[in-house]
Amino acid sequence: MPHDHDHPHTVLPSDPALRVKALETLLIEKGLINPATLDEIIDTYENKIGPKNGAAVVAKAWSNPAFHNALMTDATRAVSELGFYGRQGEHVTAVENTPETHNMIVCTLCSCYPWPLLGIPPAWYKSDAYRARAVREPRKVLAEFGVTLPEGQSVKVWDSTAEMRYLVIPMRPSGSEGLSEQNLTALVTRDSMVGTGLALLP
């Protein structure tokens, strides 16, 4: 096993953009990666897989009691049936906010996140500050997102230490009673599904 002083990565250029370019060029020359594949992966996570998937799940759970029940019973199966199964979302649990309990997701050890439902995690989710603090002082963290919870509402912080991925089902906002499932999706923000935000008011 390499020691700290002789990790192979230390021979790469120090500028990160050049480092990636150097690896990419070498790997293409060796026939190990195809540039069109890289473009396809990037297009997938920039344009096809993102928080709109999770928002569709939440809006359906708000609108459809049978789906809500299925989601809370076996979220992996329920989201799969909507086409949202896949890499980094092979095992899913939905956790639902109530007036008594607010849920919030973190990965203190790395950056585990439900990719098929929310896409690639934002920089703050992967930051040292969020990883370090979310488990110890979730209410101060929430305040930095502009969220203040009542003292009597408990916080459950889910640290994603295994391959179970969590989706927060935010509380349905008041005044949204007459909205269609389609219109409800616009109220469901990415942060509300990580638990660092609330659903928007209509």
Partner: peptide, 25 residues
Amino acid sequence: DGAILPDAADADVFDYDWHAKALAV
């Protein structure tokens, strides 16, 4: 570790092109 810096709701998925490349590679 200091304060957390939330991003804008419409922020890009990747802050830089090389981030996207790093993930794809």
